[in-house]
Nucleic acid binder design. Structure first.
Lengths: 166, 166
DNA sequence: GGTGAAACTTGGGACAG
DNA sequence: CTGTCCCAAGTTTCACC
């Protein structure tokens, strides 16, 4: 019962590319212990099968002028399927909303918003989110400090798990 | 009052690399409208100055076997500086905790956790988080659906802002 | 999975505006 | 200081074993 048809080399490739997405293929091949052509074939396969969804530069929001990050908890009036979908579509259209998670419990959605400053977030809040149909309650929490923000998944947790089942 | 000593070409470079971090330098140069050598020089400068913090492959958590994502709201007993720092350090040492944000309001920290399944999250919760000194209250919210999860910052918001101040 | 070879990319140097 | 042109070293990516 392996991960998902992935062998240890595939997982190593994913872990390496998650840590450094601009690594050259020869460097990657050296690290995972095979030669470059089969390594590239594996990477292409992983991309095609959707294990790798893309590659992104990690841009420093603060120094670029995005000073505020806010979590917004949203409760909806109606939780009918179409109404949930309508709200999700709305979220996708708002550039300030970077993440929209549907949660269990009392709150329906958790949004993570990134904005240049408080006033532009306030504008979004009052002019966009609060005027949206079906929105019942909105509770915002400002991020005071970013203590940890690691992209991707914890491969060490996965490897530890696979050890146990092996 | 531009962004941060960045000209429109720099911002275009950042936006392009955020969208596709594996783009070759010649392709990037073509897109931003300059030739390759100065484009590479700009990229290196942006990296050195910390505007680009790194490059990461965006790995699909679900297909890799990370089925659950949980937001955890943590309240601490003492909010003294050293106690806050101690908790942040603790979060950095837990691989399951991918993000740790210090918030304003009634809750002190919001954690985003990624785990293979509910039981391994439960183990983390009971054996790690709940046994941590100074942790007063813990409230967990399971992510039912990921409606939106876009990496990086909204460059279009930034450009719109710069237009206004220009 | 490995090898070799062609096409391309990177990244430096020399130079012009 | 930023852009252009050119060139060697390294990288990607093919066909083939």
């Amino acid at each position: 019962m392996p991960s998902n048809g992935l062998d240890p080399i595939d997982r190593k490739i994913l872990a390496e590319l998650q840590a450094d997405g601009r690594m050259t293929n020869v460097e990657l091949a050296k690290r995972v212990g095979i030669s470059a052509p089969p390594c590239l074939r594996r990477v292409r396969t992983l991309e095609e099968q959707g294990f790798i969804k893309g590659y992104h530069a990690d841009v420093d929001a603060r120094s670029l002028g995005f000073e505020v990050q806010v979590f917004v908890m949203v409760g909806l009036h109606s939780q009918a399927k179409d109404d949930l979908t309508a709200f999700e579509d709305q979220c996708r259209s708002w550039p300030l909303v970077r993440e929209c998670h549907m949660l269990n419990g009392e709150v329906d959605f958790l949004l993570k918003c990134t904005a240049p400053d408080l006033s532009s977030f306030q504008t979004f809040l009052t002019d966009e989110l609060l005027t949206t149909a079906n929105v019942e309650s909105v509770k915002t929490s400002l991020v005071i400090q970013e203590a940890k923000d690691v992209p991707g998944v914890p491969f060490d947790v996965l490897e530890a798990r696979l050890q146990k089942t092996a």
